[in-house]
């Protein structure tokens, strides 16, 4: 009766530790139920040869699923496609967002309107986003062909999504369109925290616009950039919705990414073991990249 766990804790730990524990507890409860269990379960699944249409036999295969994946030529195709897509999406989104954030950080008439407008893509559900761009790229009726032909840049209607050399970039464009606003806002929020004194001091020292950007803004933006890079990488590397709506991995295997392969193996071929193993490989890649970004940008100078 006398000893509750809180009492015991308070005797062992100081006020800081106790407060921290209480403040973090709700998050851990949620994550425990909804995230941690599924994560462990899916790792467990990845060690078995589970095929849903064969419910009576699900042998333990250890690293067998992983071994099979490495021998599957489609896996290496998917790795290549995922890499191209992620690098293109993350790098362009980040640079684009930085430009937009710098623009919105300036004071000029119409800024409020502009900053409201850039929220449009963010508010567009990715399913609608995919549909909209697919409709714009349509080889028969699409707006893109319409504009380019009317302006005279293109002689006749051409194929965009159905051209394997273009597919990934067309999808990346739809992704960048949608992801840029959040990235820009995160950077903008980060810029807002930069003390104006630093700029004044720099100006007094005779620094021009670029020097101020390079020596004041950029270093102060490091945490913001890290956030953006980590987040964009995490969602781009496993992006799925656009591929489902726009190309289904095609044409041919031109947009056959890892997340598409996971979907096909899990929900079409109903091979849960292989699907889980693929997911773990993708998770490891995501983790390593995120860690590098956090290490690279997170340290305080």
């Amino acid at each position: 009766m006398a000893d509750t766990w809180a009492d015991r804790l308070s005797r062992k730990a100081g006020y800081d530790e106790r407060s921290a524990a209480i403040l973090i507890l709700p998050v851990f409860v949620v994550l425990m139920v909804v995230a941690l269990y599924p994560i462990i379960y899916s790792f467990y699944t990845s060690l078995f040869d589970i095929v849903l249409t064969r419910p009576w036999r699900r042998p333990f295969v250890g690293y067998g699923n992983y071994a099979r994946i490495f021998q599957d030529p489609m896996f290496w195709v998917a790795v290549q496609r995922t890499t191209v897509y992620t690098v293109v999406t993350v790098s362009i989104t980040t640079v684009f967002a930085l430009v937009v954030a710098l623009l919105l950080n300036e004071a000029f008439p119409g800024r409020r309107l502009l900053s409201a407008l850039i929220l449009l893509p963010w508010a567009t559900p990715s399913i609608v986003n995919g549909l909209m761009w697919k409709w714009i790229y349509d080889p028969g009726y699409g707006l893109l062909n319409g504009i380019l032909v009317q302006v005279g840049l293109l002689e006749s209607y051409t194929v965009w999504l159905g051209n394997p050399d273009r597919t990934l970039f067309m999808i990346a464009n739809a992704a960048i369109w949608k992801q840029m606003p959040l990235a820009a806002i995160l950077l903008l929020v980060s810029m807002k925290a930069i003390p104006q004194d630093l700029y004044r001091a720099a100006t007094v020292d005779g620094a021009n616009v670029f020097q101020r950007f390079w020596h004041v803004t950029l270093p102060a933006l490091k945490p913001g950039l890290m956030l953006v890079l980590v987040y964009e990488t995490m969602i781009s590397i496993r992006h799925f919705d656009l591929f489902l709506i726009m190309t289904q991995g095609g044409p041919g295997d031109a947009s056959y990414t890892l997340s598409w392969q996971i979907y096909v193996e899990t929900f079409r071929n109903l091979k849960f073991g292989i699907g889980a193993a693929l997911s773990y490989l993708l998770a490891i890649a995501t983790f390593v990249l995120s860690y590098l970004f956090i290490r690279g940008f997170g340290s305080k100078s």
Partner: peptide, 29 residues
């Protein structure tokens, strides 16, 4: 803000839950 022991571990544990692709979590969830 609170410099307690294990804050790095807590942060990484929270973040790590997001590295697994959503598709992998659907079935167990």
């Amino acid at each position: 803000v609170i410099h307690f022991k294990g804050r790095k571990a807590a942060l990484y544990t929270i973040l790590v839950t997001r590295v697994i692709p959503d598709i992998a979590l659907i079935v167990p969830l």
